[in-house]
């Protein structure tokens, strides 16, 4: 009885939903040089990068933004189209959340636009975390489990885990780091 109660109690407060971040206090990776040769220097793992991809609320906000900001216009639901696929193991500009943050904020050659001043730092972190969940690189218990539209693939929490093959000299990063 006590054991069951304590096991149940552990399930409470699984994560914090932090709605309010004081302005200007979310760190962001340094700006990268946008060339087609390299994703930039291997970024150091950052605190927000670690936090955002383990938090179910941030991931589902990222999922919503993925549609709202028309990411799916080019990347579809992760399978790719006009833009590259996001759910495979091939990462041209690095698979770490910091790399993806830079890709979204600064843009990349051959079509990826910059979302600087189109999305807030917080929103870019949410998007970057969600992009990793499409390749099953985030904890399964945090990844989104439902979809607002029709299913074109299993939910993010049921996708097969991929093993990132990074382009350039980006470090292969993992949420377990």
């Amino acid at each position: 009885m006590i054991l069951t109660a304590s096991v149940l109690a552990v399930g409470c407060e699984r994560e914090d939903r932090i709605f309010r971040t004081p302005p200007g206090e979310i760190p962001a990776p340094p700006r990268v040089q946008v060339t087609s040769l390299s994703p930039g220097p291997a970024p150091a793992p950052s605190e927000p990068g670690r936090k955002y991809q383990r938090n179910a609320y941030q991931l589902s906000q990222g999922k919503q933004l993925f549609r709202v900001m028309n990411c799916n216009g080019c990347h579809s639901t992760g399978g790719g189209g006009m833009g590259p696929a996001l759910m495979n193991d091939h990462w041209i500009y690095g698979s770490s959340i910091e790399n993806i943050f830079s890709t979204i904020r600064d843009g990349r050659p051959n079509g990826m636009p910059s979302f600087r001043n189109r999305a807030t730092t917080e929103q870019i972190w949410q998007l970057a975390a969600y992009v990793r969940s499409v390749a099953a690189l985030v904890p399964r218990d945090a990844a989104p489990g439902r979809d607002d539209g029709l299913w074109t693939r299993p939910a993010e929490n049921r996708l097969p885990r991929t093993h990132p093959d990074n382009g350039g000299n980006a470090a292969a990063a993992d949420w377990r780091d």
Binding site: F19, T21, P23, T120, E122
Partner: peptide, 16 residues
């Protein structure tokens, strides 16, 4: 300046 203290969870982000 701070939408999340008025309406926590709303989709309006705080813009710098």
């Amino acid at each position: 300046v701070d939408p999340q203290s008025t309406k926590p969870g709303a989709n309006m982000p705080a813009v710098d």
